Simulated scan of single mutants.
Amino acid sequence: MYTWQYYDLVLLAVASSMVTGVGVGMLTAVSMSLAIVSTGLVAAAIIGHGLFVRGPIDDPQDLTDEVDTLN
């Protein structure tokens, strides 16, 4: 059975925000460009949270590990 991970939710939230922007642009008096830009900023904030607040590392020491496959 598959369990949802944090980054699955990040991807879902990014896609949902952009689809919401298209919907708002099509179904309301808000211009399409304003709706896309504003929900794009929301998507950027979600991506920033996924990268910098809850980054894909367990410990800051993981950043100093060498990559053996490239040597």
Results as ranks from 00 to 15, higher is better:
residue 62 D to G: 03
residue 55 G to Y: 11
residue 16 S to W: 02
residue 3 T to F: 11
residue 7 Y to S: 05
residue 69 T to I: 14
residue 15 A to P: 03
residue 61 Q to V: 14
residue 52 F to I: 04
residue 28 T to H: 07
residue 30 V to L: 10
residue 63 L to S: 10
residue 28 T to R: 08
residue 14 V to L: 08
residue 3 T to R: 13
residue 39 T to E: 04
residue 59 D to N: 15
residue 55 G to Q: 13
residue 8 D to E: 10
residue 57 I to H: 11
residue 61 Q to G: 07
residue 40 G to C: 03
residue 58 D to W: 07
residue 69 T to N: 05
residue 2 Y to F: 13
residue 14 V to D: 03
residue 40 G to L: 02
residue 62 D to H: 09
residue 41 L to I: 14
residue 35 A to S: 15
residue 46 I to G: 00
residue 67 V to H: 09
residue 2 Y to Q: 10
residue 50 G to L: 01
residue 48 G to F: 13
residue 17 S to H: 02
residue 4 W to D: 05
residue 4 W to S: 08
residue 27 L to Y: 12
residue 18 M to S: 05
residue 4 W to N: 06
residue 2 Y to H: 08
residue 47 I to E: 04
residue 66 E to D: 09
residue 31 S to E: 12
residue 45 A to Q: 10
residue 57 I to R: 09
residue 17 S to G: 04
residue 56 P to C: 03
residue 11 L to E: 05
residue 30 V to M: 10
residue 46 I to Y: 00
residue 50 G to T: 02
residue 38 S to V: 15
residue 19 V to H: 03
residue 33 S to H: 06
residue 58 D to S: 12
residue 1 M to N: 06
residue 33 S to P: 04
residue 39 T to C: 11
residue 60 P to A: 08
residue 26 M to S: 11
residue 18 M to K: 05
residue 70 L to F: 08
residue 56 P to Q: 04
residue 30 V to S: 03
residue 53 V to H: 10
residue 20 T to K: 04
residue 4 W to C: 05
residue 20 T to W: 03
residue 11 L to M: 04
residue 31 S to A: 08
residue 6 Y to S: 05
residue 19 V to A: 14
residue 68 D to I: 13
residue 39 T to P: 01
residue 71 N to P: 06
residue 43 A to R: 00
residue 37 V to N: 10
residue 22 V to M: 12
residue 47 I to G: 00
residue 70 L to D: 06
residue 14 V to S: 01
residue 3 T to I: 09
residue 55 G to M: 10
residue 42 V to I: 15
residue 4 W to L: 13
residue 38 S to C: 13
residue 22 V to N: 04
residue 50 G to P: 02
residue 37 V to L: 12
residue 47 I to W: 02
residue 31 S to I: 03
residue 60 P to Q: 06
residue 29 A to N: 12
residue 52 F to D: 07
residue 28 T to D: 07
residue 10 V to T: 03
residue 46 I to F: 01
residue 37 V to I: 15
residue 35 A to W: 00
residue 43 A to Q: 00
residue 45 A to M: 10
residue 53 V to E: 14
residue 51 L to K: 08
residue 2 Y to R: 11
residue 56 P to F: 01
residue 12 L to F: 08
residue 38 S to Y: 06
residue 67 V to D: 14
residue 57 I to A: 08
residue 54 R to N: 15
residue 1 M to C: 09
residue 54 R to G: 06
residue 57 I to F: 15
residue 66 E to T: 07
residue 51 L to E: 07
residue 25 G to M: 00
residue 61 Q to T: 15
residue 41 L to D: 09
residue 58 D to N: 13
residue 7 Y to W: 06
residue 10 V to C: 02
residue 24 V to N: 01
residue 42 V to Q: 02
residue 15 A to Y: 06
residue 11 L to I: 08
residue 4 W to I: 15
residue 43 A to C: 11
residue 49 H to F: 15
residue 48 G to K: 06
residue 13 A to P: 03
residue 37 V to P: 03
residue 34 L to F: 10
